[in-house]
Amino acid sequence: MNARRIVAVFGAALVAAFALPFVLPSNYAVNVAAMILFTAFLGQSWNIAGGFAGQTSFGHVVFFGTGAYASTILQVAWGWNPWLGWIAAALAGGVVGLAIGALAFRAGLRGSYFALVTLAFAEVFRILANSAEFTRGGLGILIPSDPRAANLQFKDPVWFYWIALALLALSLAVAAWLKRSRFGAQLAAIRENEDAARALGIDVFRAKTICLGISGAMAAAGGTFYAQKYLYVDPSIAYGVEKSVEMLLVSMIGGAGTVFGPLVGAAVLGGVGEITRSFAAGQGLSLVVYGAILVAIVAWLPDGLIGVFARRGGARRGRDA
């Protein structure tokens, strides 16, 4: 548990990951790797609220989509630089997180009730985006292609790989901080037992709301990345339920509430996706396999894949929910 050694190992892994594209055989492989890192980042944003604080959300896409739309609209309709728009998008996601948190937690919603309310918010945002003028409804918004670094657009996919890597590294740092800080300890206490947390002087409402704000800002930053990569946003891309499920899935499979769980989960899901794609065209087969993996994990490895490696001292689970 030597902090200096952890930083050294982490740094070495970062350098290796940075150099990885140079040994990958094709742009396609770089793209797959970039999307794995990006999915790990999105998973981590979910994990901050769903894993560390136990506030399971089924609608995290509400932040992702808000980020995607915020930077895109600022850029296309208002002429903002997308880098600046990116920051605004993260802020917008944070504000939406704080607002949803304030409403849901003030109403005392916990567990599956909170999960359903987040799902409802995501759907409401999707319907709004589908009907509002400034989102151009179901048509979606095209970002004019002009691949320059200043425009946050790149011809060479390696740049998106590196940006995804930077996002992931940042999110890992946030998670590592939560593991070792007072705020993180408060979230863990809330996850385990809210009444006991309250009795020990934790402002549960405040901690949960701030946590959802951080989580929302991260997911929204992911939304901008996605929009800049594909240069297009529409309501089902931005607020489609698949992304919510994906974020939740990679965290649960890898290990919710752990620093590296989402990365492990994203690598496994990315690998499974590539393998199933080589067997059958379309999405069908990969979803079947994802489902089977999730069932297996929930049944036999409730701490996720990372729990297999991290099981120390014979400490066994005793989950109460």
Partner: peptide
Amino acid sequence: TQPFARLSVRENVMVGAYL
């Protein structure tokens, strides 16, 4: 008793100490 079941004893007591 309302322990933080999946945390260690040390982590449980630290939650109090952080106040």
